[in-house]
Design a binder for these strands. Structure first.
Ligand code: FES
Ligand code: FES
Lengths: 178, 178
DNA sequence: GCTTTCCCGACTGTTTTCGTCGAGTATAGC
DNA sequence: GCTATACTCGACGAAAACAGTCGGGAAAGC
């Protein structure tokens, strides 16, 4: 199985999204700032998530992303499979053909079994349960005022696409290098 | 967690070794030929396995490798950890410090749990059980004649270190390219 | 028409992985 | 001793995977 930062970031971003989507669509720029993930990278990730129908998008001002279905019906496995394509631990990729003809190699069953275990587990964890965990831990969700347009006075920091403060390693706070 | 061909090869090689070690030490050259794994690569792998005391080595003619302890007391997790060092699915590597100070990130627990599942499973499979599987499937172990020295006549194919027939992808039979 | 926001594909730099090579050491048998 | 067998070690290099960027575009709202 493949488990990379792509999958980790995707899960983190989805939690962020699930926590806040009641106030309407959430923009990637906002997620980028909160979670310190590069905006460009998020775009890539959410492109895949959308194609797998885990999220829905709304364009234009006030737009952003929303969950494609209820958080309780999205599992971690769904998310990871969406962004990290193959979730398979075997060498042959499930085709049982490491050897010439229909003969699986000595260890095929072992990897297949491992695979099943992992998928089963990740499939047993729903996005909702992760969200609940966060709420239980007292994460504060700024209940955005839903103001369509503030009387533009304060020079709001515009989220620019280039170079998020530098997404080194952090997933939610102070960034620090490897 | 890291799961690469290194780990797969190591497990395959260990099965081969376990199947045949009753006839005395097994050479890497022999394993290399049977399993189509490059000899040089096997040397690297077995170096690590030896440092982790999973195998023991005997030098000189007639030498080779033997299991370091009973097959029933070696688990797949042991093997993989030996060659693929960190068996950890979290970003922080267990130190719980994706964020600044002692704060674990939103997903730490998730990855840690996954990790535990995987290790538990791999730890529950012993080398002995894999060997039994193979025997049950009718794998033929050439019960080598234990002849110390044949009356050298037939030009025995000497296993040379250079270029195993080309270890493309196969783990035990006809090789074929990716 | 202007801004916001998503959308897409191609691209590049780094890291990891896979596998090789060369030189060396211990042991056994003659 | 000499030689052949085998393991031992470290450095090296090509190739693939990964992480992240960039530029241009298209819908939506005002
Ligand atoms: S891993 Fe599936 S046949 Fe070898
Ligand atoms: S993964 Fe451990 S703190 Fe983030």
């Amino acid at each position: 199985m493949r488990l990379t930062t792509k999958g980790r970031f995707a899960v983190t971003a989805m939690i962020d999204l699930a926590l806040r989507q009641n106030n309407g669509p959430v923009t990637l720029a906002a997620i980028s700032q909160r979670q310190q993930i590069s905006l460009s990278y998020l775009e890539q990730l959410f492109g895949k998530l959308r194609r797998h129908e885990l999220v829905e998008s709304t364009r234009g001002p006030g737009g952003g992303y929303t969950l494609g279905r209820k958080a309780s019906e999205i599992t971690v496995a769904d998310i990871i499979v969406s962004v990290d394509e193959p979730i398979d631990a075997t060498q042959c990729g499930g085709k049982e053909n490491c050897l010439g003809e229909g003969h699986r190699c000595m260890t095929h069953e072992l990897w297949a079994a491992l695979n099943t275990k992992m998928v089963d587990f990740l499939d047993s964890v729903s996005l909702q349960s992760l969200v609940d965990d966060q709420l239980a831990k007292g994460v504060v969700v700024e209940n955005a005022p839903m103001i369509k347009r503030a009387i533009s006075s304060a020079p709001v920091v515009k989220p620019i696409r280039v170079n998020a403060p530098n997404s080194v390693f952090a997933l939610g706070g102070v960034a620090f290098s490897k």
